[in-house]
Design a protein around this nucleic acid. Structure first.
Length: 598
RNA sequence: GGGGGCGUGGUGAAGUCUGGAGUUCACGCCGGCCUGUCAAGCCGGAGGUCGCGGGUUCAAAUCCCGUCGCUCCCGCCA
């Protein structure tokens, strides 16, 4: 802790070594224990907590100041560091062996009574916390999360600088580029009716940096995606974005491994074993029904099509006949009641399943299930052996087209398999993503932005649905931390990809003509990645959502309870921007003004 | 766009299913006592339009309808 005019040392830094020194501290009044005569104050600053002793003899401040001290007053204290008396040492505190006898106490700034207690054991409504985020971050949870976030970024920079990456800032008022998500738009005053987009990622800029000879670039980049919120999604978030020239996939994954090792070391003091686990997209989908498998537990999806190849049970047989599949998972001994099992069925239906068959293995080896009577003995025993079923196990089976079955069982697997209190970290690279995802109606939609190396061009053209791109993800505990790819550096390939993606030459020219031209000036082969910093830190900190990692996050409806954003603006301002508000919106405003809600 | 959960003094919860006086618990706040506590202790006190609107009822925190906010999820999103 640097000294300043107002303090000579951080409160949390005091140790027995400092005994005998007179120090000046500044910080906040945490807990206050007023015994009438002596008063103990837990003085807190960013370095920690130390006990300050105030008493009439040693502290010549007025009685009023002493007893008038209240929680969260901002104070400055000068006093002597001394060992705590015999028997009063507090082993819970790093500073617990000493205390500061205040000779002088100054209130720098008093505090109103707080809207909620800063005690970490008190759970507070999150909206309230966000509304008073500046108080919330005085609590250890947020204070530590902010520090962890900073350390994570610092570790990332360390790797980037060690490997000679150049930090470059790219603009945030840009032309809309296709990343799949909805753009956040900013109106242009100088060109009414025209809009900037906020970047969903610095994608094309970093590629141009490669063309520009930077060779190795990184940026801690703010990104924006105007989509619905989730526990791990905000409309603005921060990524470590990097890119390298003369690079292929292995170079990127190697750099990611370095980053993972450093960040985990700094945040958790743990050593990550290299190489990180790696699997193909196809394997991930097959075994885990997800492109971001949670590998902290097994419960792999098993193909049961062979078992039920000849079945009389229509739900299974029908699926197989129409080219689909029957697959199942062994959920283990879940101890679920009938209604709990039915809950899984509803969940499956929510996920688009026609149904979900559950079976419980009884003591005598028989299978209890609403559909057991429709299945032959051979099928039941085949099922048990395929799923390695033991007494008490719950078997869950779905039948439908492959993609849907994977999705359903993959989600159910997560619902029932999430290890509680398991602090294991399961990193994995998922590689060989397809170029296209197949929609329900059989049509294709790009799985990545169109600047991703689509692999073999002939395959891309002849059977696009089976084309494998050079795209890869980094996954941690079932959450996608980020993704990247080898990029296209050949303008001919780029044109071909647009064609296959049904982007006409005219459209490509009008939207990215400038970029297509850039590709024509000796573009080096290049590849890169972007890691979601908020996500990574939230998992490493065992936080349930990324709002705990973002200093000033938004609620699920995109509002900031502290500042009131988004907010209305004056009509003059809209006029100046060339924006006309629709009559319906205007009417809604008027109604809102008349009858304020909540 | 859809489904689930939640909304009760400043904070957190119980009460809601099965309607009967704003009832209870913990913390905080205010005042008093108290010179070795560390979630200090003891005594006293203040503080609520039960999110909001409507309906049913003799009577609504409680039942019904609507609405707003927060949250988790599906869709969406890499």
């Amino acid at each position: 802790m640097a000294t300043s005019l107002m303090k000579t040392i951080g409160a949390g830094e005091l140790r027995s070594d400092h005994v005998g020194e007179t120090v000046t501290l500044a910080g906040w009044v945490g807990r206050r224990r007023d015994h009438g005569g002596v008063i103990f104050v837990d003085l807190r600053d960013s370095s920690g907590i130390v006990q300050v002793v105030l008493n009439p003899e040693d502290s010549p401040a007025t009685e009023e100041t002493l007893h008038g001290l209240r929680t969260e007053y901002c104070v400055q204290i000068t006093g002597l560091v001394r060992p705590r008396p015999e028997g009063t040492v507090n082993d819970e505190l790093p500073t617990g062996a000493v205390e500061v006898v205040a000779a002088h106490l100054g209130v720098l700034s008093p505090s109103d009574a707080l809207p909620f207690q800063l005690d970490d054991r008190v759970e507070v409504d999150e909206t309230k916390r966000l509304q008073y985020r500046y108080l919330d971050m005085r609590r250890t949870r947020m204070a530590e999360n902010l520090r962890a976030r900073s350390r994570a970024i610092s570790a990332m920079r360390r790797v980037m600088e060690r490997d000679d990456f150049l930090e470059v800032e790219t603009p945030t008022l840009i032309a809309s580029t296709p990343e799949g998500a909805r753009d956040m738009l900013v109106p242009s005053r100088l060109r009414p009716g025209n809009f900037y987009a906020l970047p969903q990622s610095p994608q094309l800029f970093k590629q141009m940096l490669m063309i520009g000879g930077v060779e190795r670039y990184y940026q801690v980049a703010k990104c924006y995606r105007d989509e619905d919120f989730r526990a791990d999604r905000q409309i603005e978030f921060t990524q470590l974005d990097f890119e390298g020239s003369f690079w292929g996939q292995e170079d990127v994954l190697g750099t990611l491994e370095e980053i993972v090792v450093e960040v985990v070391k700094d945040l958790r003091g743990e050593t990550v074993e290299l190489p990180l686990h790696r699997m193909t997209y196809a394997e991930a989908m097959d075994k885990y029904g997800s492109d971001k498998p949670d590998l902290r537990f097994g419960m792999e999806i098993t193909d049961l099509s062979d078992v039920f190849a000849e079945t009389e049970f229509k739900a299974f047989g029908g699926a197989i006949e129409s080219g689909g599949t029957v697959r199942g998972i062994n959920g283990g001994n879940l101890g679920l009641s009938r209604s709990g099992l039915d809950g899984l069925v509803s969940r499956a239906q929510e996920l688009g399943a026609k149904g979900l068959v559950w079976m419980v293995v009884e003591e005598d080896g028989s299978l209890r299930s609403p559909v057991a009577k429709f299945l032959s003995d051979a099928e039941l025993s085949g099922l048990k052996s395929e799923l390695a079923a033991e007494t008490g196990d719950v078997l869950l089976i779905a039948a439908d087209e492959i993609q849907r079955v994977s999705h359903i069982l993959g989600q159910i697997r997560l619902d029932i398999g999430q290890p509680d209190g398991n602090d294991e970290l399961a990193f994995a690279f998922v590689v060989d993503f397809p170029v296209f995802e197949v929609n329900d109606d059989g049509s294709l939609s790009p799985a990545h932005h169109p600047f991703t190396d689509p692999g073999d061009i002939e395959t891309l053209v002849s059977t696009p649905e089976s084309a494998v791109s050079k795209a890869y993800d980094l996954v941690l505990n079932g959450t996608e931390l980020g993704s990247g790819s080898v990029r296209i550096h050949d303008p001919e390939v780029q044109a071909k990809v647009f064609e296959v993606m049904n982007i006409s030459a005219e459209e490509a020219e009008s939207r990215f003509g400038w970029f297509l031209e850039a590709l024509r000036y000796g573009t080096p082969p290049h590849a890169g990645f972007a890691i979601g910093i908020d996500r990574m830190v939230s998992i490493l900190r065992d936080e349930p959502n990324i709002r705990e990692i973002i200093p000033f996050p938004k609620t699920q409806s995109g509002a900031d309870p502290l500042t009131g954003s988004p907010s209305k603006v004056e009509e003059d301002q809209l006029f100046e921007l060339g924006i006309d508000v629709r009559t319906e919106v205007r009417a809604a405003w008027a109604e809102e003004a008349e009858s304020p809600t909540d």
